[in-house]
Amino acid sequence: MTTTLESPAPPPAAASAPPRPRRARRGARELLGGAAVQLLLWGYAAVALAPLLLMLISSLRPEAELRQDPLGLPVRPALENYTTAWTQANFSGYFMNSVVVTVSSILLGTSVSVLAAYALARFRFFGDALLTAFFMAGLMIPIRLGVVPVFYLLDNLGLLDSQLGLICVYAASGVPFSVFVLTAFFRQLPVELEEAARIDGAGEFRVFGRIMLPLVRPALATVMLFQFIDLWNDFFFPLVLVDREHYTLPVGLTTFFTEYGLNQSLLYAGLVITTAPLVVLFLIATRQIMTGLTAGIGR
């Protein structure tokens, strides 16, 4: 900032008389402006973080305390809300369903995508460009609008009200994005690598699994991370496609809120349980998430 302030070339003629007071005044204004900017930036940081903090704090307070003073701190951290939510309100079940469905969907979706991406990036065949375009078309499709046919499709396959049905839909929904990112990564790898391996007698799948796959690990992590966020948070497909026994956390929350609507501290605990795994993930992979969000812009 200081360099840019001083960079305007000093006007040679008028340089003698006015510059000193002017620069001082400008410096003061600049300082004041800078303070206002910092105030705004940190003020909004408070706005962004306060609700999440309040959610955590309120989940640790007994209901009676919360009613009296919604903004107070916990006198002594109470974990009852969590045990009640976990056992009585069936959050243990929702949590397990979420873990099983999310993890399986990511594994299935990413596995098929990485195979297809490899072929699309490294092989030449009839209709390869068309096939790439076909996969890319899925990037902008609002897939929820197909939910009624999906419902009857799963019904016909006997997959309605099952985790497997949900997993298939979720895995498929991640394919366009994963294929897109992974294809781009595979294309960047030098051809010499696989050629050398093949000369050494490695088969097609060996080249793929031993040589190429490890090289796209960062891309795999990005792809899986974003699928995790999307799928863990989704509530629409479980709402429509599975019964209560198979509800994931976000849908579980909807029944939880109608049943325990009057017990606010308990509700807060439910919200924290749903959110905690994502926050943990975020703390582990902040950098990857922040850069992944803006991939393709700038540079």
Binding site: L52, W232, F235, T275, L293
Partner: peptide, 8 residues
């Protein structure tokens, strides 16, 4: 907040 489910 982007990480948090819209439902939450």
């Amino acid at each position: 907040p982007y990480l948090v489910s819209p439902i939450v």
